[in-house]
Design a protein around this nucleic acid. Structure first.
Ligand SMILES: [Zn+2]
Ligand SMILES: [Zn+2]
Ligand SMILES: [Zn+2]
Ligand SMILES: [Zn+2]
Lengths: 133, 133
DNA sequence: GCGTTTTTGACAATCAATTTCATTGTCGGC
DNA sequence: GCCGACAATGAAATTGATTGTCAAAAACGC
């Protein structure tokens, strides 16, 4: 379904995208990442940026966030299941974990007879830096 | 900011959309609702369906769900803050509440100095009816 | 009714994301 | 080191949901 990971070829473009994701802070859209690559002098097509981000996300190497009314945002995150606390104003992000939440979600789903359970959870707010009005 | 709620006029179209939402089960997209209205013989433009859903959502009268990779889905739900447990296969929905989750989200945001906190949370799974493979 | 103001809706525009498809690049095998 | 099968690329075209436009129609206070 996902990973013919063995057949993935090691291309200049994939390395460029992957390396860029390793060197930037916070979440960025495909289009932003594409222009960053242009600025760096890398020649990578927008389509390829989309495709590479897709495959990295499928492989679990990056996280995807879908803010209300905006384009998809991508970021290289730490391993393992976690969620994001995001500033609505500047976009700065904190990774948060909550075993209690994970358990609650699974339990409530089981209680209703659901299997193969997953969930999405994002917390939005205004960070300290953006708070001074 | 939002609500000149007093100036909203009582039109045939708004009544049609609102009434439809009261009589259908589960979440539906704007386009689905639009064709349902056509099937019912109501004459409502797609643009108006979008606008009406938007304002109903702004007014908190309906819930909006944004499933991964799909269009926005709308549904008239019960009052108050809750979340949704949704079947990935048939779309059937259960409303769930979790005070513990709400508290956790607020606390973790405060701990990181975030204010004006909100969150989104959806649980996905396969319901009993869809489970027989 | 009348006039004002909101609402409607056909159509155009937007815009992220995907598809197409001819060209290019990888890489295992020789 | 070269070949050839096949994955990967990317420019351009396409999709498809959603939003903007604006003239015409409907609602409502009087
Ligand atoms: Zn901030
Ligand atoms: Zn989780
Ligand atoms: Zn189901
Ligand atoms: Zn909640």
């Amino acid at each position: 379904m996902t990973s013919d990971a063995g057949t993935l070829r090691n291309t200049h473009q994939r390395r460029a995208v992957s390396s860029l994701l390793g060197s930037v802070e916070g979440f960025h859209s495909a289009q932003e990442l594409h222009s960053m690559l242009r600025d760096r002098g890398e020649r990578v097509g927008l389509t390829t940026v989309y495709r590479t981000l897709q495959s990295l996300a499928d492989a679990g190497e990056i996280d995807v966030m879908r803010p209300p009314g905006g384009e998809h945002l991508y970021r290289r995150c730490s391993q393992g299941h976690h969620h994001h606390l995001v500033c609505r104003s500047c976009g700065s992000t904190v990774e948060v974990e909550g075993p209690a939440v994970e358990n609650w979600a699974d339990r409530v789903a089981e209680k209703h007879g659901f299997t193969d359970v997953s969930h999405t959870l994002e917390i939005f707010g205004t960070c300290q830096g953006c708070c001074r009005s």
